[in-house]
Amino acid sequence: PEEVRRLVEELYRKGVSPEQVKKILKKQGIDEREIEKVLRRIG
């Protein structure tokens, strides 16, 4: 979803590592598979 992409990109631009991005967003209840999809697209 758009909102997940925005959150991931925001953290990524701040220099947060992909592993940390995953941890942070998982705590917020976001599906890990969604996060990984976005990270793959960015990375």
Rank of each mutant, 00 (worst) to 15 (best):
L25V: 01
P18T: 14
R33G: 11
V4P: 02
G43Q: 15
K22F: 14
V21R: 01
K37C: 06
I30K: 02
R40G: 08
G29P: 01
K37Y: 06
R41C: 08
D31V: 03
V4T: 07
G43L: 07
E32F: 02
K23T: 13
E34A: 07
I42K: 05
Q28P: 01
P1R: 09
R40H: 13
G15C: 04
E36F: 02
K26C: 04
V4M: 10
L25A: 02
R6I: 08
K14F: 07
D31T: 06
P1V: 09
L11W: 05
E36S: 04
E32H: 04
P1M: 12
K27T: 09
R6V: 07
E2W: 11
Q28S: 09
L11A: 02
V4Q: 02
K23W: 09
V38Y: 07
K26I: 14
E34G: 02
R6G: 05
R5V: 13
G15P: 01
E10F: 14
I24A: 05
K27W: 09
R33K: 12
V21E: 00
P18N: 08
V16I: 11
K26A: 12
G15L: 04
E32W: 04
K26L: 14
Q20T: 11
E36I: 05
P1H: 13
I30M: 11
R6A: 09
I30R: 02
Q28M: 14
G29V: 01
Q20D: 13
R41S: 15
I42R: 06
I42G: 04
E34P: 00
K14H: 10
D31P: 11
I30A: 03
K37E: 15
V38P: 00
K27R: 14
R40F: 06
S17V: 07
E36A: 03
G43H: 11
E36T: 04
E2Q: 11
L7T: 04
P1G: 09
E9Y: 14
R13N: 07
E32C: 04
V21S: 02
R5H: 11
V21P: 00
R5A: 14
I42P: 08
I30E: 02
S17F: 05
Q28E: 07
P18A: 10
